[in-house]
């Protein structure tokens, strides 16, 4: 029955996506700056006729509701249109960049959770200890440090001074990686390319830490506070009265319940990681979606921005659906 509900929820996402599509379409056209002007500005002297020709090619000469109708009609067929500035299908451009963003988001999430779980659990169990104070102080730093600043510091230390890790990019040129999925770490494993695996992992480390530090901090704090509350509850007292040892009490009885608020926050973070990392991508020269979108916004490349926003909206919808599904496993009182 869970599957039926999942399909229902996916269908319910359609109006949400439609709303997002209309809003982003309208707002892009309300922003000052004309895409054709910007393109022509780059091209130098052009005739009025040339400009008119381009406008009609992009359908910009038609009334806005007609443009919207054309956009939605294309969208319904799964066609995101062509980029104004790059003259290529938007789907293809996004498809090229999305794997890099996903790989970085996954790396950042992995780093964040690997730090957050031990830190959150230990500081809850040893509340007010030195360890607790230090890690909560660290979490405060993690939240307040801008990711680009952390990235630059990490590059200075580990790439420039120690020369342990590369400064930028996703992989060394001589790794000869054959792309399968576009996720380089996965592709290296699939093709059995050891050099490429080492190289892609090395490239992934610093950006993942820069981006994941905030995740680690936020998740550790949420996990700590929900564990603290649960460790005082009656069922934890019963678990102890049954004769369960502390590790079992904390990791089985308490953690399972503390995961409910934690999963919500992690789900939101996944959305943020996939959508908002243009700055870290820029610092590390990471060829992801974020940089593509920033460029597209400056160029008033309407179709490309619309397509990217649709992708972001979809990742948020998908992340919240995954969170809701996890909920039903964690808390039997909740149904989809």
């Amino acid at each position: 029955m869970r599957l039926v509900k999942v399909v229902e929820r996916l269908l319910a996402a359609i109006p949400i996506m439609l709303g997002v599509a209309i809003i982003v379409f309208v707002f892009m056209r309300l922003t000052p700056g004309d895409p054709v002007d910007i393109m022509m500005g780059q091209g130098g002297a052009v005739s009025e006729g040339e400009i008119e020709r381009l406008r009609s090619e992009f359908n910009l000469d038609k009334p806005i509701h007609v443009q919207l109708g054309l956009f939605l009609a294309d969208l319904a067929r799964g066609d995101l249109g062509n980029s104004f500035s790059k003259q290529q299908p938007v789907a293809k451009l996004i498809g090229e960049r999305l794997p890099a963003t996903i790989e970085l988001a996954f790396g950042a999430l992995l780093f964040g959770l690997l730090i957050a779980f031990p830190v959150g659990i230990l500081s809850a169990v040893r509340q007010n200890s030195l360890l607790d104070r230090l890690s909560m102080g660290g979490a405060f730093l993690g939240i307040s440090m801008p990711a680009f600043w952390l990235g630059i510091i990490l590059i200075l230390i580990f790439s420039v001074n120690l020369k342990w890790l590369p400064v930028q990019g996703r992989i060394d040129y001589d790794a000869n990686l054959q792309e399968v999925t576009g996720l380089y770490v996965l592709d290296s494993i699939l093709t059995g390319n050891r050099t490429a695996l080492v190289s892609s992992l090395k490239h992934l480390i610093l950006p993942s830490i820069s981006l994941g530090a905030a995740v680690a901090a936020i998740v550790a704090r949420v996990l700590r506070s929900s564990l603290l509350e649960i460790l005082r509850s009656d069922y934890i007292r019963l678990a102890r009265a049954k004769g369960a040892g502390e590790p079992r009490v904390v990791l089985v009885h308490a953690l399972r319940n503390a995961l409910i608020p934690t999963v919500t926050v992690v789900g939101l973070q996944v959305g943020v990681l996939l959508g908002g990392n243009m700055i870290v991508e820029t610092v590390f020269g990471w060829p992801g979606l974020g940089r593509l979108v920033v460029e597209a916004i400056f160029n008033r490349d309407f179709p490309l921005v619309q397509g990217a926003v649709m992708v972001y909206a979809f990742t948020f919808v998908a992340a919240s659906l995954v969170v809701d599904i996890l909920y039903t496993y964690l808390n039997p009182k909740i149904e989809l």
Binding site: D234, L238, A241, G245, R256, N331, P332
Partner: peptide, 28 residues
Amino acid sequence: SGREMRRIRGKDIAMIFQDPLSTLNPAF
């Protein structure tokens, strides 16, 4: 010791608490 005490808890001496709903773990 903690370990010896755990062997007694729930085996030699068991306890029933006041509020049954909040005393049962909701997730299991």
